[in-house]
Amino acid sequence: MARPIIGIISNQHTINDEYVVQAAGEINISAVADVAEGLPLLVPADPDKVHLSDLLENCAGFVFTGGRANVHPEEYGEAETPAHGTFDRNRDRITLPLIRALVERGQPLLGICRGFQEVNVAMGGTLYPEIRDLPGRDNHRMPPDGTLEEKFALRHNVEFSEGGVFHQLMGAQSVLTNTLHGQGIKTPGPRVVVDGHAPDGTAEAVYIDGAPGFTLSVQWHPEWNAKADPVSRPLFEAFGAACRDWADGQRARPMLRSA
């Protein structure tokens, strides 16, 4: 049986200040191929090169990856400030309508870091430009120094709602995760259910209420060490199973629901 095609949203980069590329991290590709057991397909974040209908028809599901650029605040009704950082309006033009279409169709999506924030914005929510500037909040950004292993080290717990979707999936109500983000959810969209929080109250895990398919998203980076990590592996395995069902014509695979 052929593996389901899973789209991985890429990010635009410039090599040597002149050569523009679309790229996705090797760890995203490995997580999709080795844990979700899908066929990775890199999706360029350029709406002039890809069309929404083609993506929906050819891919069984999508991973909305992290990235340096942030969702532009105009997408959630706020003015741009220096605190909002850099942007990629082309990626906004791809991801936000794609997320809404996937939710409506029941087609699987997995949001990671920026992707987590994109899901909230696509569903009508807003973002804080900088979590560490809020009273009582921790610095969730990537450590500036150290090896990749140190940057992606497990740094704080995430507490899930008792009996909720993530609690059931992980088999534990509290898990240890990495943290490498500056922005975060301010106001959840009307259907966005925050199912997990960091100790400082930052939203870390969400799903879409009433969606007919898989819509789990997380603020941390589960693609790091996904094959061996006890938190990352079940997330990608469940996402892969939902993608296989979609590709096999079973269409929507309901998420676990709270009791």
Rank of each mutant, 00 (worst) to 15 (best):
V20F: 14
V20L: 15
V21D: 05
V21N: 06
V21R: 13
Q22D: 12
Q22S: 11
Q22C: 12
A23I: 15
G25T: 04
E26F: 15
E26Q: 15
I29T: 15
I29D: 11
S30H: 13
S30R: 14
A31G: 03
A31D: 01
V32S: 07
D34F: 05
D34C: 08
E37G: 03
G38Q: 02
L39G: 06
L39A: 13
P40E: 00
L41K: 09
L42Y: 04
V43W: 05
P44N: 12
A45N: 15
D48I: 02
D48Q: 06
D48H: 03
K49Y: 14
V50S: 05
H51N: 09
L52N: 02
L55K: 09
N58T: 14
C59P: 01
C59V: 04
C59M: 13
T65N: 03
G66R: 00
G66H: 13
A69S: 14
N70R: 09
N70Y: 09
V71Y: 00
H72P: 12
E74K: 14
E74V: 15
E75Q: 14
G77Q: 11
G77F: 06
G77Y: 06
E78Y: 07
E78T: 09
A79K: 15
E80Y: 09
P82M: 02
A83T: 14
G85P: 01
G85A: 06
G85D: 07
G85Q: 03
F87Y: 13
F87K: 09
F87H: 05
D88N: 08
R89M: 10
N90P: 01
N90W: 09
R91Y: 11
R93Y: 04
R93C: 01
R93M: 02
R93W: 06
T95P: 02
L98R: 05
R100I: 11
L102Y: 06
V103E: 03
E104Q: 12
R105N: 08
R105S: 10
R105W: 12
P108E: 11
L109Y: 00
G111S: 12
I112C: 01
Q117N: 10
Q117H: 04
E118H: 00
E118S: 03
N120S: 06
N120R: 08
V121C: 01
V121E: 13
V121G: 05
A122N: 02
M123Y: 04
M123K: 00
G124M: 04
T126R: 13
L127E: 04
Y128R: 11
Y128W: 15
P129I: 04
E130H: 11
R132P: 12
D133F: 10
D133M: 15
D133E: 14
L134M: 13
L134V: 11
L134W: 13
P135C: 11
P135I: 15
R137P: 01
